[in-house]
Computed example of a mutant assay.
Amino acid sequence: MANIDLRPWREERRKARQNQFVTILAIVAALAAGAGWAWNQSVQNQINFQNARNTYLEDKIKDLDVRIKEIQTLRQQREELIDRMNVIASLQGDRPIIVHIFEELVNATPEGVFFSSLIVNGTSIQISAQADKALSVSDFLRNLDNSVWFDNAFLEVMESIKDGQEVVGHKFNLRVTRANPLKNEEEDS
């Protein structure tokens, strides 16, 4: 009986090792759960941080879109103002031209020619007039062609005015294009 050990220390040692194993297992499980929870919190914090950055960027993009629309409307208004200024400048530049046109019409009109109507459409001038002689009509056309303020004088219609069998005058319509010698001088300079 010498080989039988009846002391309970082995049993206690086994229980102590088992308790130690369970304790270590519980600590490792708790540490693993803690590490998993910490990793999950870290990932959630990164996701929340990225979502906050995305929201911030989306807000800034919306603000920039509003500013871009404002800039586009301002550019459009600027272009409209520039167009208006160009129209006004061209009108201001054309103001003295009408004086020259009328002066040249007076100088080019021979005696015996009387205007019925004068219609200006852009650079085209439509003249309806009467003349006492056919020679006055041809002189008028020649004078218009020789003027630096007119180009392309063209007789469209000419009718004789009769009193019985006698020709007392001529009605005629002509078209002439307005020229601007001042503009040509500026371009040459």
Results as ranks from 00 to 15, higher is better:
Leu118Asp: 03
Gln130Glu: 13
Trp39Arg: 11
Ile68Asp: 15
Ser189Thr: 09
Gln76Trp: 08
Gln130Lys: 15
Ser90Asn: 10
Val22Ala: 11
Pro96Gln: 03
Gln50Glu: 14
Leu74Cys: 06
Pro181Cys: 05
Thr109Phe: 03
Val176Cys: 02
Phe21Arg: 12
Asp145Leu: 04
Ile98Glu: 07
Glu166Phe: 08
Ile24Glu: 15
Asn184Glu: 15
Leu135Asp: 13
Pro181Ala: 03
Ala38Thr: 11
Leu182Arg: 06
Gln44Trp: 14
Ser189Ala: 15
Phe140Asn: 01
Ile119Val: 11
Val167Met: 00
Leu74His: 09
Arg142Asn: 07
Glu104Phe: 00
Ser90Val: 07
Leu118Ala: 05
Pro110Ser: 03
Arg10Trp: 12
Ser116Leu: 09
Lys15Ile: 12
Gln20Tyr: 10
Thr177Ser: 07
Ile97Val: 12
Glu186Asn: 06
Trp39Asp: 13
Asn146Ser: 04
Ile101Gly: 00
Gln18Gly: 14
Thr55Glu: 11
Ser138Asp: 09
Ala32Asp: 08
Ser128Gly: 07
Lys62Arg: 12
Ala38Cys: 04
Thr109Leu: 02
Glu12Phe: 14
Phe150Thr: 01
Glu58Asp: 14
Gly93Gln: 15
Arg67Lys: 15
Val28Ile: 11
Trp149Ile: 01
Pro96Asn: 04
Gln77Cys: 04
Glu70Phe: 07
Glu159Phe: 03
Ile125Ser: 03
Gln46Lys: 15
Leu81Trp: 03
Ser42Ile: 05
His170Gly: 00
Leu74Thr: 06
Ala29Val: 11
Asn121Tyr: 07
Pro8Tyr: 10
Glu186Gly: 04
Ala35Cys: 06
Phe115Arg: 01
Ser124Val: 12
Ile61Ala: 10
Leu144Thr: 00
Ile101Gln: 00
Gly169Asp: 00
Glu11Cys: 09
Asp151Val: 03
Ala38Met: 08
Phe49Lys: 15
Gln20Cys: 07
Leu141Lys: 03
Asp139Arg: 06
Asn51Arg: 14
His170Ala: 01
Pro8Met: 10
Leu6Ile: 05
Lys69Tyr: 14
Gly122Met: 03
Asn152Lys: 07
Asn146Met: 03
Lys60Met: 12
Asp83Glu: 06
Ser124Cys: 04
Leu135Ala: 13
Leu105Gln: 00
Val99Arg: 03
Arg10Ala: 08
Ile61Trp: 10
Arg95Ile: 15
Tyr56Met: 09
Ile24Lys: 13
Ser189Phe: 08
Gln20Pro: 02
Ala108Phe: 00
Asp83His: 06
Ala33Trp: 10
Ser116Ile: 09
Ile61Glu: 12
Ile4Pro: 01
Leu25Thr: 13
Val113Pro: 01
Val176Thr: 01
Lys133Gly: 04
Asn3Pro: 06
Met85Asn: 11
Gln41Asn: 12
Asn48Ser: 13
Glu186Ile: 13
Lys62Thr: 11
Glu156Pro: 02
Asp63Gln: 12
Ser136Glu: 14
Phe115Gly: 02
Glu111Arg: 04
